[in-house]
Computed example of a mutant assay.
Amino acid sequence: MCLAICRNRVFISQNHCILNYQLDGKFISRVGVPGDGELEFKDPWGITIDKSNGDVYICDVSNNRIQILSENLHYKSQYGKDILTEPVDILPTRDNIFILDGSYSCLHIFNKDLVLQKNIIYRGEGQQVIYPWFFFQFALIIF
C-alpha cells in the first residue's frame, strides 16, 4: 500500500484498487478491480501525482506498466508494458519521469513524451541496490 497527497486529496493504492479521500478523511471515490485492462490492477504499488496537471501515476507492478489517471481517477493512458518488468515507484519532474523497476533494480528515465532516455542499472558487482522499494519517497524526504 502506498499513498500520495496533492491538492487537499489523498490517493491510496491497495488491493487492486485506488482510493481517493479528502484530507479531512471524507471518502471521495474508488476505482479498480483485479485484471489487466483499463482501471484494472495487479498489485498497484507506487503512486504519485504530477503537480503540474494533477495526473495520478500508478505503478501497476504485476501488469508491468504505469497507468495514468486524471485527478478524478478517470483513465487517461498507460505505458511501459514492453519496457518495464516490475515498476515499483515513479517520480514525474518538470522534464522527466523516473521509474524504478524492482525486478532489475533499474532506474528508467523517460522524457515527458514517454520516450526512454536512459537506464541506470543498480544490480551488479559493486552496485548492490537490490529491490530498491520506496526510493522516491525517501529521496523526497532527504531533498
Rank of each mutant, 00 (worst) to 15 (best):
D113Y: 06
V61N: 02
E71A: 10
F143I: 13
I90H: 04
L114A: 02
F135P: 05
G25T: 09
G54M: 09
R7M: 10
V10G: 05
K118N: 12
K26M: 12
N20M: 15
E40Y: 04
S77Q: 12
P44Y: 01
K81G: 00
S70I: 02
I12F: 04
L100Y: 07
K118C: 10
L23Q: 15
I90S: 02
L39P: 02
F98D: 00
I120P: 00
P87N: 06
F138Q: 11
K118L: 11
W133K: 14
E71G: 09
L19C: 05
M1Q: 13
N63K: 00
L114Y: 09
V88N: 07
Y57H: 06
I49C: 13
F143V: 12
R94I: 13
D24W: 03
I58H: 03
D36K: 12
F136A: 00
V56I: 13
I66D: 02
I99S: 01
N119G: 01
Y21S: 02
Q22P: 02
I83N: 07
I47Q: 08
E71Q: 15
G126K: 09
G102R: 04
G126C: 08
N96G: 01
D89M: 05
I58F: 00
G126P: 00
L19A: 06
K81W: 03
N63T: 05
V10R: 04
Q14K: 14
D113F: 08
K112C: 03
Q128N: 14
K42S: 10
S103A: 14
F110W: 01
S70N: 07
L107E: 03
I99R: 02
A4Y: 05
F138H: 12
L100V: 15
L107H: 02
Y104A: 11
N64C: 12
E71N: 15
D50H: 05
R94Y: 11
I121P: 05
Q67R: 05
V10I: 15
G102E: 04
L116N: 06
C6N: 14
Y79R: 07
K76W: 07
D113S: 14
I99Y: 06
Q22D: 13
N119C: 14
D36L: 06
I68D: 00
K51Q: 15
R7D: 15
F138S: 10
P44I: 07
G54K: 02
D43V: 12
Y57T: 02
N15L: 09
R94N: 14
N72Q: 14
L69A: 01
V33C: 06
C59K: 00
V33H: 03
F110A: 08
L69Q: 00
P92I: 07
L23V: 13
D89H: 07
G32M: 01
S103L: 13
L23D: 04
K112W: 04
H74S: 14
G102Y: 08
P44E: 08
I83V: 15
H74I: 11
I121C: 10
S105K: 04
Q22A: 12
I141F: 11
K26P: 07
R30I: 11
R94T: 14
P34M: 10
P44L: 07
